[in-house]
């Protein structure tokens, strides 16, 4: 079996004095959609931020396409081929939609073209000149995902793309993620919305107290439901 696209081993991370991740281990294979489930504070967002090099202190191993990234700076990590869509979406208020869309540099060939992104999210085309500050939550989310599809990165880290959005928008985001999978993107997705996660993912990792405590294939989800309810408190 080939080496997974992304492999975390013993990943630990700290914010100042507080030790947030206590040895996270997981794998994402090329073309998969994998979710990180867990309660608030379980370490899901920190795991993504640690992969991106956005936590002040981390140790362990982050191997991406055979390269060790634990010591790399966040710009080098992005250039290795990982793109990040943060929980707060990170739309730049003083940039318009087009400027936001073109902000992340193309790091390798094979990214989507702007017409393809507009086809995926027609709103972004209509609002091309609007300042980022004036977008609705759903539009912000579309822009936050859309702008990382241009870059040619093959692994997308999406932090709670469904959070705080109307059901119809959540469905659109879900269709988008399935479409991205069909186009060969690999996705690591943080979710609290269990039902949403099961409509898009191949596998789920459950996190608790800064560790991965369980891995469930989407097909086995029904059987594992009781345990998951306990972990997630839903």
């Amino acid at each position: 079996m080939p080496e997974p696209m992304l492999k975390l081993e013993g990943l630990e991370a700290w914010y100042g004095e507080s030790h947030v991740l206590h040895g996270v281990g997981l794998e994402v294979r090329e073309g998969e959609v994998v979710t990180l489930l867990g309660r608030n504070g379980a370490g899901k967002t920190t795991t993504l931020r640690a992969i991106m090099g956005l936590v002040p202190r981390r140790q362990g191993s982050i191997r991406f396409e055979g390269r060790e990234l634990i010591g790399a700076r966040s710009d080098a990590i992005a250039r290795a081929g990982i793109a990040y869509c943060p929980e707060e979406r990170g739309i730049f208020a003083s940039l318009n939609v087009t400027e936001n869309l073109f902000l992340p540099p193309v790091i390798r060939a094979g990214g989507m073209t702007v017409p393809e992104i507009h086809a995926l999210f027609p709103n972004l085309k209509e609002r091309a000149r609007s300042p980022g500050a004036k977008l609705s939550g759903g539009e912000q989310q579309m822009l936050a995902i859309g702008r990382i599809l241009r870059t040619g990165a093959r692994l997308l880290l999406l932090d709670e793309p469904s959070e705080g959005l109307a059901p119809v928008i959540v469905q659109q985001i879900g269709r988008t993620i399935r479409e991205l999978k069909a186009r060969g993107f690999t996705v690591l997705l943080v979710e609290q919305n269990f039902r949403f996660a099961q409509t898009v993912a191949d596998r789920h990792y459950v996190m608790e107290h800064g560790r991965v405590v369980e891995m469930v294939a989407n097909a086995d989800l029904a059987a594992a439901m009781d345990r998951l309810h306990e972990y997630l408190g839903v």
């Binding site: 700076r73 966040s74 710009d75 990040y84 208020a93 003083s94 400027e99 902000l103 992340p104």
Partner: peptide, 22 residues
């Protein structure tokens, strides 16, 4: 585009760097 990058970095430098900009 350079100016857009500058303005973005003024708002959130860490995220701009996480997009691959030095």
């Amino acid at each position: 585009p350079l100016g857009a990058t500058l303005r973005a970095a003024t708002e959130n430098a860490a995220l701009v760097q996480a997009f691959g900009i030095n």
